[in-house]
């Protein structure tokens, strides 16, 4: 819904972009997809209890951001966004490695990947 809000009321240059036409697929479409990916990531993170799925959801969020970066990069006619995406991918990879290691460690302890299992620290 955020996206819709954005799309209908957003900054003038977005409107310009839409009306001026980048062909059939405009910045708006890219952004829409990116936002959907990000939102799905958020929803997945909140809704799923499996640690691996949750991690994948965050990856989805990262990739959503990446997609938006590339779209903006294209829109601004510079490569900064693309460079950024490359770094983001690196970070995501590092995080993935970390996540997998952690998941293995945890699985060894509890034989379960349910996030709810880990709630002894509270208050």
């Amino acid at each position: 819904m955020l996206i819709n809000l954005l799309a209908s009321h957003a900054a003038p240059q977005l409107h310009a972009a839409i009306e001026g036409g980048l062909g059939a697929i405009t910045l708006y479409h890219y952004l829409f997809v990116a936002m959907v990916m990000f939102a799905l990531g958020v929803i997945g993170f909140l809704a799923r209890r499996n640690l691996i799925i949750m991690f994948l959801s965050t990856e989805l969020m990262f990739q959503g951001a990446g997609l938006a970066l590339i779209a903006f990069s294209r829109y601004h006619f510079n490569h900064t966004g693309e460079v950024f995406v490359i770094f983001v991918l690196t970070v995501a990879a590092a995080e993935a490695a970390l996540a997998l290691a952690l998941v293995v460690l945890l699985f060894r302890q509890r034989e379960s990947l349910d996030a709810q299992e880990w709630s002894s620290l509270q208050g």
Binding site: A11, F38, T58, F62, A65, L69, H76, T80, F84
Partner: peptide, 18 residues
């Protein structure tokens, strides 16, 4: 971190610079 990244993305999107 994803939130942060999304924020940075929008900043970049709005200004065109990082």
């Amino acid at each position: 971190a994803a939130m942060l990244l999304m924020g940075f993305t929008f900043i970049y999107g709005a200004t065109g610079y990082t």
